[in-house]
């Protein structure tokens, strides 16, 4: 009887689950499987695919463009510590009794909920060499600003700065805020009674207790950083001279612009392995810290 009930429940649930499951099957699992297979083929979309064994993976090792885009991706992650620092400052400020903090929280969160492409277009104007607000401000104080997105040495910093701007008040700040609010007030009271100052309270209570969330943010930030694509695609197309081509953009270009489906799949799988390794690390550490699970 319970067996039949389970079946009955399942039969009622199945149609509701089906669309999501079918969608996942059709648009995620199947393409993932196909890309795995394709990574061992040479395929240009027009002529039939040809099996090439692991040639695509061998080629990747000697492809300077692959390493360059990997390096670009890593460099553009350098803003992460600054983002974390800023987010923590904001969280600390919002955690104290600041006037209008609900409104402030909303304002800080805005960049995270604004559509990526709209943000990219606005920043293109901000960075515009002639009429951009940055260079106009710099011109006021007598500095001739660079052509931010068109200059090999400035394009990456421009993206890093944008990343900090958008990351500082969003999810990261919320994570810190939640972690801060989880720290029992009694710790601070006890420390206060023992004569600990504000700095000591932060350094000996708050900071150690933020350990798990810090680690979580770093790993998630790196995983997110490896997937950077949208802004670079819209704002520079990977230029100038390929200096902002991220690994994601490199995969896209190979697959959809140069029609090298097999090679693009191989690069995508290497990216998958990198991200998977990071995720494993995150899981391991979570088990050790225990605490951060609640933030997910």
């Amino acid at each position: 009887m319970p067996r039949r009930n389970a079946l009955k429940e399942w039969s009622a649930a199945a149609p509701f689950l089906a669309p999501n499951f079918l969608g996942f099957l059709l648009f995620t699992l199947m393409p993932v499987g196909v890309s795995m297979v394709l990574s061992f083929y040479q395929y240009d979309n027009i002529t039939p695919a040809k099996f090439v064994g692991t040639a695509n993976y061998h080629r990747l090792i000697v492809d300077p463009k692959f390493w360059a885009s990997l390096a670009n991706t890593l460099i553009m992650m350098l803003g992460l510590p600054l983002t974390m620092f800023g987010a923590l400052l904001l969280a600390l400020a919002l955690n104290s009794k600041v006037y209008g903090r609900i409104a402030l929280r909303t304002i800080y969160y805005l960049p995270s909920i604004s559509p990526l492409i709209a943000v990219a277009v606005v920043w293109m104007w901000i960075y515009n060499a002639d009429q951009g607000i940055f260079n106009s401000a710099l011109a006021r104080i007598g500095i001739r600003g660079p052509n931010w997105l068109g200059d090999i040495s400035w394009a990456k910093p421009a993206f890093i700065f944008m990343g900090i701007w958008s990351g500082i008040g969003g999810f990261t700040m919320l994570l810190y805020l939640a972690a801060l609010q989880d720290i029992p007030r009694s710790y601070y009271e006890a420390a206060h009674l023992d004569g600990a100052g504000a700095w000591q309270r932060f350094w000996y209570i708050t900071w150690p207790l933020l350990g798990p969330v810090n680690f979580f943010i770093i790993v998630m930030g790196i995983i997110g950083g490896f997937q950077a694509f949208d802004w670079q695609y819209v704002m520079t197309g990977g230029g100038p001279a390929g200096s902002t081509t991220t690994i994601g953009l490199y995969i896209y270009n190979n697959a959809f612009s140069y029609s090298k489906m097999g090679y693009a799949s191989a690069v995508a799988w290497v990216l998958f392995i990198i991200i998977f390794a990071l995720t494993l690390l995150q899981w391991r550490m979570r088990q050790r810290f225990g605490g951060a699970a609640q933030y997910e």
Binding site: I152, G239, P240, A241, G242, N253, S257, Y258
Partner: peptide
């Protein structure tokens, strides 16, 4: 064949020359 790819590469390299 490969027009889009080699023209892009050419542009990238010439970009360095223009700089």
């Amino acid at each position: 064949r490969g027009y889009l790819e080699y023209t892009r590469r050419t542009t990238e390299i010439l970009d360095l020359a223009w700089r």
